[in-house]
Design a protein around this nucleic acid. Structure first.
Lengths: 119, 119
DNA sequence: TTAATATATGCAAAAGATTATATATATCGT
DNA sequence: ACGATATATATAATCTTTTGCATATATTAA
């Protein structure tokens, strides 16, 4: 009669029920970020960040794409995207502000920011 | 700039991120239930059920009301109600079906059901 | 008062999640 | 090929959650 699978649903919620993972997801739903940026955002050691990313990746919530030395992550689960929007508000597509992420690494994104600052 | 408290939000999600608690909440958002019904619904020992109820009560998600020997619980957190609706679908106000809860206890609700069956 | 029923609490064992740290791999520049 | 940088993995220690079980309380009925 009621065919909700509470096991599956609660397991999916558990993925979000962690402060640092939520923070990562909130950043990634705006635009793809590389690990170095997330490391700066969280202020945690790199292996810690990579572990959370692995967790989210293996849960099917985020996807990775390698670009040179860097790996960019993005949210790739539509259901989780919708949940994040409900929980954290709609993300504003035009203003791609740097939201707390401040690094000076050599990744492609920083390179392009540095170019536009120089111009 | 972004004043989301990921600690608080993730703590609130953790309350829902548990299969038996989700099942309880799904029952309670339809209508108040007493402990004996929830015990039958979960098929778990009574102290287990009372413990989950205490957890939810202390998290401010459900409220209790004593009626004679029985204690009826209901969801009393509007935000969580809204989340449940998003996660599990809208609950249909008119058809208060007994959804899986089948007991023959002496609580007021069962008494009234038994009365209408006898009539 | 005693027994029965409904519910709650306390506590410890077991299971699971989180975090830190050491190390591995892979890519790039020289 | 070598060193530097970016990222990943493995493992173990710690911490938290979950669960089971014994017992307590409170209400009703006899």
């Amino acid at each position: 009669m009621n065919d909700v699978d509470y096991e599956v649903l609660s397991a999916r919620l558990k993925v979000l029920a962690h402060p640092e993972r939520l923070r990562i997801l909130d950043a990634l739903r705006r635009e793809p970020e590389c690990v170095c940026h997330l490391e700066a955002l969280l202020g945690k050691p790199q292996p810690y960040v990579s572990q959370q990313l692995r967790f989210l990746r293996e849960a099917g919530v985020i996807c990775d794409q390698k670009q040179g030395q860097n790996v960019f992550y993005r949210v790739c689960d539509p259901e989780v995207s919708a949940w994040l929007e409900a929980l954290l508000g709609r993300v504003d597509g035009r203003s791609m502000q740097r939201h707390e992420v401040v690094t000076a690494c050599a990744c492609p994104k920083c390179a392009s920011v540095n170019l536009s600052l120089a111009a």
